[in-house]
Design a protein around this nucleic acid. Structure first.
Lengths: 343, 343
DNA sequence: TTGAAAGCGCTAACAT
DNA sequence: ATGTTAGCGCTTTCAA
């Protein structure tokens, strides 16, 4: 454990002022003689000077740090998102402070405060899914923080701020339409009804049914909680229906469903057709490959980065524009898990 | 975006000094009248005062922030680790700054510097696996930073510092011994030879063979790179051997292997027995369940937290002790993927 | 019971 | 071409 080296140490050793050292080390346009520059850099390197960001932040009012709140870093979707955001921030000279809310709405607001207290210049916030559409704790906290932020993926309605998310309703619609177009009429849907995201996907599913003139059957809408095991349990109820196809509205749900189907000796798509959502790497295993609704994480991250850093630019430039909301479209990627029913 | 409120603002409003406000808001033992206390707290709450951690850090020389360098946050193992470390840090009043090295040894050292420059009080470092056993870039950087750190999971030999890791050699040994005990004699091993971890597991495999008097057969040692697809490719070579069992020395390798076996129409354990390593959630899907070598992430995180925070205590107390290295033992968890051969 | 003053390490005006 | 001064927001002696 080496000792800390400060600007002043270097200044003393070189026999110049701290200012001169600061100027040179930051490559600022100034008139310091080549000779002095050389010596300053020499000494800095030899003493392994590392500038103290904390001190710099205090005076510049910029920490070069961005905060991120995610519900669950263990989920593949969020860890990918975190990774891309971190890359993007680093490219722009910032570090990313990642925090985990464990999907507990109470934590969201606390983490937002913690992050701003630590001087984050801006925030990416993925709200807890269980947050009510107008979560007041979070909304109130966000409206009071002194830095720009972007709500990502899960969006609290009625909060006028920058937002990026996927169109979940459309995702559900695409999934169900695909099954209907393949000739299925008894299409089940397994959904986490507690989740805002899940409800949106469900309403897309219903829209597709309506569009095809198919009467929605409550018995075909199965509810499952978040985990694979929950979906495994929920899927049992399928066997007492005449469904020929299932829309599994999340990756975990798809995994639980498939496990259940296999355990029962059923084959996909021979016996049941399946459309999944947001295929995780795990699905690479499946023969046949799964047809699924894909959300492009990079696109999400890029949009969020773009929005936040634009805001930061605007902020330092003076005036900032109106909040912007971007909705990204999911895509259906055809695999081999849907059987074409002959008419 | 609200404005920033400082100690001074409150002091002015209450008509007391910043000192008084600081004392009260930090609950320091001091003699400020109950009446003043009340008013200070009142105003602080009303104005939604949030203390500026940056300023505080500058004077206390403590940022209440810990840094983490992981090779790949998208990997389940590391994201779980990150989550547990973050929880542990938060319990202890610290935030965790998570950074991703993309398994590039060059990034390790840079991130370590970045984190310390940002005033991290301590560091958890998971080295890039491809870092040579005595990676000098990283080792040199680490030996010069002014804060304590713990090397986690992947350990650079010859660096005298706190370390926590799993015994990979023992893991390989347990896996292979289990197969040998089940009567298998033609036991293949698929391993990422580029990785330090992989090589250790391989040598455990070889030790088990020696112990059972089985001559190692080079044809049964297959090399694969990191990803599932690599393992899928590598596994093809199995079919030209007479192996009855396979030790898949990582989770990705197990997935690629299984995909290959299934594609070929082979069944586990009927046709081939398999022992996996570090089962990820994905494996929950398999029927039969996989026998595998398990590493307890919580244990790893707890040990790392314990070590680092003890160091931090020692540091502020005065003298600090000698580096400590903890090696955790993996466990074999029996599933149904190993067939007992009758003698 | 309270406040003034100094200073953490750095940057940014403003001298010289 | 280089230095001085002031101050970011906070904590911490030390003095009143």
């Amino acid at each position: 454990m080496a000792a800390k080296v400060t600007l002043k140490d270097i200044a003393r050793e070189v026999g110049l002022s701290p200012t001169a050292v600061s100027l040179v080390l930051n490559d600022r346009p100034c008139k310091i003689s080549e000779e002095s520059r050389r010596r300053i850099k020499e000494v800095a390197r030899r003493k392994r000077y590392v500038p103290n960001q904390i001190a710099r932040s205090l005076v510049t009012q910029r920490s070069q740090t961005i905060g991120l709140v995610v519900p669950n870093i263990e989920s593949r979707f969020f860890s990918s998102l975190a990774r891309r955001l971190e890359l993007g921030c680093r490219e722009r000279g910032c570090a990313l402070l990642i925090t985990n809310s464990d999907d507990a709405p109470g934590n969201d607001a606390e983490l937002v405060r913690l992050l701003t207290a630590r001087g984050a210049d801006g925030l990416f916030v993925v709200a807890s899914d269980e947050a009510s559409p107008a979560d007041h704790g979070l909304a109130a906290t966000l409206s009071q923080i002194p830095v720009p932020y972007v709500m990502v993926d899960r969006v609290v309605a009625g909060l006028p701020c920058d937002k990026v998310s996927f169109n979940n309703e459309q995702g559900g619609y695409l999934a169900c339409r695909h099954l209907l177009e393949a000739g299925h009429r008894r299409v089940a849907c397994i959904v986490n009804i507690v989740s805002q995201t899940g409800r949106e996907r469900l309403s897309g599913y219903l829209r597709a049914l309506r569009e095809f003139g198919v009467e929605p059957d409550p018995d075909l809408v199965l509810t499952s909680a978040y985990y694979i095991e929950d979906a495994y349990e929920a899927s049992k109820a399928l066997f007492s229906t005449d469904a020929t196809a299932v829309f599994a509205s999340s990756d975990n749900i798809a995994l639980g469903l498939l496990k259940r189907l296999y355990a029962r000796g059923l084959r996909v798509p021979r016996d049941v057709s399946v459309v999944s959502y947001d295929n995780s790497a795990a699905d690479v295993l499946f023969e046949p490959t799964l047809t699924s609704i894909e959300q492009n994480v990079s696109e999400l991250a890029d949009a969020a980065l773009d929005l936040l850093f634009r805001r930061l630019d605007e902020e330092s430039a003076g005036e900032l524009g109106a909040p912007e909301e971007r909705v990204l479209e999911p895509r259906l990627v055809a695999g081999e898990s849907v059987r074409q029913l002959s008419a």
